[in-house]
Amino acid sequence: MNVLISGGCKNGKSTFARNIALRLAGDGKRYYVATMIPCDDEDRARIARHVADRAGLGFETLELGRKVERCLELADPGATFLVDSVTALLLNEMYPGGHGAGVDPDAVDRCAAGLLKVAAGAGNAVFVSDYIYSDAVRYDSFTEKYRADLAFVDKALANVCDVVIEVCAGNVLVHKGEWEP
């Protein structure tokens, strides 16, 4: 089963996603696909905390900031994969030469294709994205393009996922499929 989870920031998406992944995995193997590439010590400290949080839950961590579909080769593809997050993955794919280098115009297609491969090939996959589409801000063209691209990837995932969930201030809205909290 594939599940897409989105919503605003800091409202429980990752915790909720982790619980869904645990339920889907049952006694089977579960992998945490970490897509954030740390830029400084603050990032590294946060990542270390997250790794410790997950340790007791039996997740093995795969750090894949780009080409996320490699998780299917690095691990047992029949397992459960928690991909956190689509947002960070797209950003990394936009800068294949590292942040600060040139932007790759094909990033959005590559990112979507990689995620769809994971959805098609994994035993179970849970994808976490961010809902960044409902504010009264006129963004610069780069940010606006990023928003449009992330929405493209979100919609592609929503189309193939069995369950699509929005987490809103810790509450759960099921937009597609069925999920008993």
Binding site: Y133, S134, A151, F152, K155
Partner: peptide, 10 residues
Amino acid sequence: ELIIGGAYQG
């Protein structure tokens, strides 16, 4: 009929 939602949501 009113349709609302975020940017780029279809």
